[in-house]
Nucleic acid binder design. Structure first.
Lengths: 210, 210
DNA sequence: ATGTGTATCCGTATTATTACGGATACAAAA
DNA sequence: TTTTGTATCCGTAATAATACGGATACACAT
C-alpha cells in the first residue's frame, strides 16, 4: 500500500514535532519533511514532487499560509493542503476554502479527527467539519453591515458600474443625465472611502453590496 | 408557547400546499400565508411584521429568491429565510449563504430535517447540513480555474489595480514605465473578456484571482 | 532552429473618470 | 417647521483609462 506522503509546516517546533510523532504511529502516513515557514516549505516542494498533503499553519513568519495556498496552485496543485490553525474565525476559514484548502482543522482537534481528515483528503475529498462550515457560513453573511450606507439609487448605480457599464450607459438606462450618475459615483466613492472604481468594486464585493 | 410563524413562497401550488399540510401536523409552527412569487411575498411582508421564517424557493416568476433575500435585509431583517430549492449547485448555495439565508434545504429533504431546520432557524441559528456545506465549499474553491490565464506579472498588476493604485503608481512600484502597465492592463482586460476596470475587478474576485 | 508566449517599451487619439465648485426640489425626520 | 438626506441637474479642468498601432529581447518548448 502506498503511504500518504505529507509535510508539516508550522513555525512552532514543539507543535511540528508533536504532530510528527503522533503521525508516526500510523503506518499509512509518512511525514516526509517539516518546514518552519512558508518560504522553506515552498523551497522543499520544488525539490520533491511526490507530496500528497501539507498540514499548513496560517500564522508563520516570512510567508503565511494564505500566500502558500495561493502559490501552491501555480506550483503544484496536486498537493492538497490541510490548514491547521488555532483560529476558528470565519474569515480565516472562508479565505482558506476559497484559496483551495482541502481541509481546515483547529489545533485542538483530536488525533482521530486529524487522521480522518488526512485520509479523506488524500482521496481527494474535502474535509471541513460541521462546526467549521458553520463558522464560515456565518462569516459569509454577516459582512453585510453597511447596507444603509448607500441609498437605493446609489446601490442601483453601483450594481450597474460593477457590470461594466459606463457612466453614459447607466445614465441612459436610468433616464437621467450622465452628470447625475457621475455625482452618484463620486458620492459612493466618498461613502466607501475609496479612491477609484477598482478599489470600489473590490470593497463592494467584500462587504457584500454586489 | 409562541408558535413559529412562517410563510411559504413557491410558484408551484402543489408544493406550497403540500408543505402547508405537512406543517399543519406540528403545533409549534403556524403557516401564516403563502405566496407564489417574490413580489407577492414582499407585499405581504409589508403588512405583517410578525413573521419568523420564510420558506423560500429560488426559481420564481417576477422576482426570484435571490432578489427576495437581498431586499429582505432592507425591509425586515428579523425575518429568517430558509431556502428550499431543487438545485444543489454550489453556486446557488454560496449565493444564498452570502445573501443572508439562514438555511438551505433541497426539495427532496425529508419532513424531519425540514422541521429540524425550521426549529433551529427560529432560534436564530443557521442550518446548512454537511452535504450542502460541502457543495458550497467545493464551489468556492473550484472557481479558480483560470489561474494560468494570466501571467505572473499580470497577476501582480491586477492585484495592485484592485488595491486602487493608478497606472502611474503601479509603474513606479514595479520600476517600469506606465506604458508597460497600461499594456498589461489592456491584456488582462482582453484575457478576461471584460470591457473596463469595474467589470474586471468583479470578475477577478469572482474567479478568485484576487 | 523555429515558434510561442511573456515582459518590456513607445506613440497617438479618443473617451472616461475624478475633483472641484454650486444649485433646486422633495420627502422624511426631528 | 426646520433640518436633513436624497435625487436630480450643471460647469470646468485635470488626470486616467482605453483602443488602436507597432517593436525588441528572452526563455522555453517543439
Amino acid at each position: 500500500m502506498e503511504k500518504i506522503r505529507l509535510i508539516i509546516a508550522d513555525d512552532h517546533e514543539l507543535f511540528r514535532n508533536g504532530l510528527k510523532e503522533l503521525l508516526k504511529n500510523h503506518n499509512d502516513v509518512e511525514v516526509v519533511n517539516c518546514a518552519s515557514d512558508g518560504v522553506e516549505l515552498l523551497e522543499f516542494i520544488k525539490t520533491d514532487n511526490n507530496i500528497d498533503i501539507i498540514l499548513l499553519d496560517i500564522t508563520m513568519p516570512n510567508m503565511d499560509g494564505f500566500e502558500v495556498l495561493k502559490r501552491l496552485k501555480h506550483l503544484n496543485n496536486a498537493i492538497k493542503p490541510i490548514v491547521i490553525s488555532m483560529h476558528d474565525a470565519g474569515n480565516y476559514i472562508a479565505k482558506c476554502a476559497k484559496k483551495g484548502a482541502y481541509g481546515y482543522l483547529l489545533k485542538n482537534t483530536d488525533q482521530e479527527e486529524l487522521l480522518k481528515a488526512v485520509r479523506m483528503v488524500s482521496k481527494g475529498k474535502k474535509y471541513f467539519n460541521q462546526k467549521i462550515s458553520e463558522k464560515m457560513i456565518n462569516f459569509m453573511s454577516e459582512h453585510t453591515v453597511s447596507n444603509d450606507m448607500l441609498s437605493k439609487k446609489e446601490l442601483e448605480v453601483l450594481e450597474l458600474i460593477s457590470k461594466g457599464l459606463t457612466t453614459k450607459e447607466i445614465a441612459a438606462k436610468l433616464y437621467v443625465s450622465s452628470r447625475t450618475i457621475e455625482t452618484h459615483r463620486a458620492n459612493i466613492l466618498k461613502k466607501l472611502n475609496v479612491k477609484n472604481t477598482a478599489e470600489l468594486i473590490k470593497k463592494a464585493v467584500k462587504i457584500n453590496l454586489i
